[in-house]
């Protein structure tokens, strides 16, 4: 049937280092790899592409570090495209999925794919919203969170795309996906095939085509983000006589220490203060000597 199947891949360090004190994230470019979901997306793209006789295009946004996984996709017979951008804008794009979706769709240069495959959510800080934004940009249907995606033969040599996804309480949902569509898959059921040696050799020296990301800021911009607040914890209501219940709720006869404000202090001192607090209240039996923070 011909056509175009696109795999949108996120190649990133799957074990980015998070500094325990500052929260700063360090990503190693050399360990950039496809997550299990991204690998599954590429594998589905290759399977469906070959069944349809369609071109398969693997696209990834990022610096030269994404070329390793793209080279593997090239060796597997896909066309590849790297969408490049400035590092500063890249950070912004990854945080703003609508702008990211626009940049990726713009990179298709007006071509409407029959099927777009991508991971259910990106491995690093994905919200899982990208597939929906991509579907919106393309104006096509969307099937998110799939655990299986198959082509079923119909009478007359036609095929249809059947997808299955997980629902709550172990239920499954089977869907017939109309085309064109954006399907996002979980890393389940399939493993990415390995490229043959001759293809890998041919891909090893190939140049990966690069286009610049379109600078398309999204309409809604995040201007401030407040820290996440955990939900309140439900505590059982006290029992007993009304007097006991009142005492338990007000804590009137219990001795308690007023909260102490420590600081402003730097991070090591804060850590020491926290450790001391935990030891004082019996959450830690002792302060292990190896814990000194310097």
């Amino acid at each position: 049937m011909g056509g175009l199947v696109v795999a949108l891949l996120r190649c990133t360090d799957l074990r980015a280092e998070v500094d325990p004190l500052s929260g700063a994230i360090t990503r190693e470019p050399r360990t950039a790899a496809l997550s299990a979901s991204d690998a599954a997306a590429l594998e589905h793209a290759l399977r469906i592409g070959s069944a349809w006789g369609a071109r398969v295009l693997a696209i990834s946004l990022g610096g030269p570090e994404v070329e390793g996984p793209l080279r593997e996709a090239l060796a597997l017979g896909a066309e590849v495209l790297r969408v490049a951008t400035h590092q500063s804008y890249l950070e912004e794009l990854v945080a703003d999925e609508q702008a990211l979706a626009r940049a990726l769709v713009t990179a298709l240069a007006g071509e409407l794919p029959d099927l777009v495959l991508c991971a259910d959510r990106s491995a690093d800080r994905g919200t899982g919203a990208l597939p929906a934004f991509v579907a919106h940009e393309l104006g096509v249907a969307q099937a998110p969170g799939l655990v299986s995606l198959e082509l079923a033969s119909l009478d007359g040599g036609e095929t249809e795309l059947l997808a299955e996804r997980r629902l709550d309480y172990g239920r499954r949902e089977r869907m017939r996906v109309p085309l064109p569509a954006v399907c996002s898959v979980e890393g389940a059921g399939v493993r990415l095939r390995r490229a043959s040696l001759p293809a890998s050799l041919a891909a090893s020296g190939a140049t990966i085509p690069v286009v610049d990301a379109a600078l398309v800021p999204s309409a809604v911009r995040v201007v401030q983000a407040r820290p996440a607040r955990p939900r309140p914890r439900h505590l059982p209501a006290p029992t007993g006589t009304s007097r006991e219940r009142l005492l338990a709720l007000t804590g009137a006869l219990l001795s308690h220490e007023p909260p102490v404000v420590v600081g402003p202090v730097d991070a090591p001192e804060a850590a020491d203060a926290l450790l001391e607090f935990l030891v004082h209240h019996g959450y830690l039996s002792r302060a292990p000597s190896g814990w000194a923070v310097t």
């Binding site: 390793g68 593997e72 390995r194 490229a195 043959s196 040696l197 001759p198 890998s200 050799l201 090893s204």
Partner: peptide, 25 residues
């Protein structure tokens, strides 16, 4: 070529003439 294990040698007439790898083909 990375991610490729040389699993064995190809030998002919007492001479090493290549390697087998774990990739297809």
């Amino acid at each position: 070529v990375t991610s490729t294990v040389a699993t064995g040698l190809i030998r002919e007439a007492g001479r090493v003439v290549g390697v087998r790898t774990d990739r297809p083909d």
